[in-house]
Design a protein around this nucleic acid. Sequence first.
DNA 1: CGTGTTTGACCCGCGC
DNA 2: GCGCGGGTCAAACACG
Length: 484
Amino acid sequence: MENHHQILQQPNREFTLLRSTDFLRQNLNLDPPTVNTGKHVDPSIKEVDFFSSSSSPPKNSGTYNSSQEESRDRRTNMAKDDRSPTLFNDQLVNTALNLSPGAGVSRSAANDENLKTLLNTLQRESLRLQEENCKLRTMLDQITKNNYQLQLFIALQKQKQCQKVETNSMICGQHLLDPRPCTKLDAQVASFPDDKSGQQGDPVEDVLEQTSSHSWGSSKSPTFEKSKPSELPFKKTRVSVRAKSEAPLISDGCQWRKYGQKIAKGNPCPRAYYRCTMAVGCPVRKQVQRCMEDKTVLITTYEGNHNHPLPPSATVMANSTSAAAAMLLSSSCSISNTEALSNTVGVFSSMPYIPMATLSTSAPFPTITLDMTTNPMQLHRETSSALTSLLPLHATSIPQLLGHPVIFPHKMPHPLGQQQQPLFLNETMSAAIASNPNFTIALAAAISSIIGAPRGTDGNNNNSSNGGSHVLPLNGASMLPGST
DNA sequence: CGTGTTTGACCCGCGC
DNA sequence: GCGCGGGTCAAACACG
């Protein structure tokens, strides 16, 4: 908790914290040597050029050097092995199989021995990789969890700033911002960091509960707390996803129960209302409606926060939608157009295949629409102009959509510079995947980026052998060049 | 019989 | 105050 506050007050450190590997180390107290059983394997997937003739080894950490030297030694041994197999001592790869026709029968025993050794080595290596895989999985879970909590703190901090700005503006008699009033949540948010007394359990969860209870809730619904008349209405944030799909529903990993259907005005296609049934009282709801212009396009609108753990498939969707919602939040404080835009760019530049993002402020609730229906290459070109038209939006809700949001800190510099590095898992729906095979690649890139983000503390890509870039199939596409 | 869907009725907010 | 439209409820129904 304390760390989060410190981090929030030191913008320069924000990025460091959210960089996967550093974040991982800091949160899990995993020093590189402890990650692996035998020798060091950097959690980030580093591209090591085993065949480079470069004579200047990187001057990184000692562990990394030792790893490289080990690789060099192995190559050397393999080279020598052609002439003198006995010189090869590395247990990992034993190439001392004498398969030459001239070898006598007396050598078969030695060959068997070598084969056994090789087998044992491979088995050990396989076990080691399994252990690593398991550990990385655990780390990934932890990162997701920590990001979730951190994002909430950032959101809370932003809410506080927002409130200050609005207060100042009111005092000056020039309420230039969106006139929509601050809400009950604002007060809760503002008081949250200091007001821990009397709270049981995780205060973060408490705030989420409060947020959820106001989200999309009917005053009649027994599940939701009814707002007192004296309280101002709660402004909701929604994320709408457009995807081509013939199916009546898109698969997002959650279980839904239909509770209503309506013919909305202006669209002959009925709008279906679904409620999450993965947990009792989960306030998350979604609307599904076909696009009037193109009936193959399914528009799914999400709102609310899950009050239960999500399966991985649902987390993927949650990350994407919550990232979109984070865009709303990042621009919610009405600081300035430029700043808001830079924030939104910061979020969406990380989403390689969330192409067309549009905000609707005319709707009763701030809604962001992610259009997955167009060609990704085209989208990359389109998005820039689409996003540059974004205006700051006063979304007073915390868009903790769908469980496990991930958010970039304020004005986070991109680690890959021109090449954007995705930190969001955008493989969202089977329908979208079907129409856009690049989603699979994007997912791989996103996972790779989480597991193997490049190290560094300044946010620049100063690591020539970083593990993220070589696996990122971004089509050379930074969605928004020049984003900070 | 339990679970999910359908559908008409109802509630509520908003604009006029 | 009234009408309209969005959202939700809940009884009836379907299905495995």
